[in-house]
């Protein structure tokens, strides 16, 4: 599975924006609707899509989309 492609679909779905493209340095600053609450919605959606579970500290430590992809890849490995 290409994590970045699948994650892009999740982002596009959660933020309701088909144009949304991911890049490694991307943060909440770059997406209008990315707030602390939609963040939870995003985490839940990612957990469901990839069949993984994140701990609180893993979620807290995420700095950008690149780290998010790396974390998912680590979980799937």
């Amino acid at each position: 599975m290409n994590v970045k492609e699948t994650l892009t679909e999740v982002f596009q779905d959660v933020f309701d924006d088909d144009e949304l493209e991911l890049f490694d340095e991307m943060t909440a600053e770059d997406v209008e609707d990315w707030t602390s609450l939609t963040h939870i919605q995003l985490i839940v959606a990612v957990e469901k899509k990839f069949g993984v579970k994140f701990t609180t500290v893993e979620v807290m430590k995420l700095k950008n989309v690149g780290e998010f992809i790396a974390l998912i890849e680590k979980k799937l490995a």
């Binding site: 602390s36 963040h39 939870i40 985490i43 609180t56």
Partner: peptide, 15 residues
């Protein structure tokens, strides 16, 4: 949803 409560103060699971 304990984690979501501590992270964003949600009162219950989004589901």
């Amino acid at each position: 949803d304990n984690s979501s409560y501590y992270l964003s103060k949600t009162g219950f699971r989004m589901d």
